[in-house]
């Protein structure tokens, strides 16, 4: 299945060369979880603090559905 992935802030250095502003699409096996997706994207788990699936924060063990919009953030804060 195909996912639209967005990496933000310090994670953008992990994006593939074809990515634009940290955004790229990725073909992954059906039913993949967020934790497995991080591995496929070569993202160290400890460098990720929030993963959103279609704008909703999701736990690492959650399975992902086809054509989901995935947003991945490192530890951050501000205000």
């Amino acid at each position: 299945m195909k996912l639209n992935i967005n990496l933000f802030a310090t994670l953008r250095k992990f994006a593939p060369p074809a990515a634009r502003n940290g955004e790229f699409t990725l073909e992954v096996p059906k039913g993949v979880t967020i934790r497995e997706l991080l591995r496929l994207c070569h993202l160290p788990e400890q460098s990720v603090t929030v993963v959103m699936v279609n704008g909703m924060v999701a736990p690492l063990g959650a399975p992902i559905e086809d054509e989901a919009q995935i947003s991945i953030f490192p530890p951050l804060a501000g205000g």
């Binding site: 933000f8 310090t10 953030f73 530890p75 501000g78």
Partner: peptide, 21 residues
């Protein structure tokens, strides 16, 4: 990582994409 990477590198505006997404 928040006070040594995210804030120094991107400033407070690092939140824009988070809240928008």
């Amino acid at each position: 990582p928040v006070t040594s990477q995210a804030l120094p590198e991107f400033g407070t505006a690092v939140l824009v994409n988070l809240l928008n997404q």
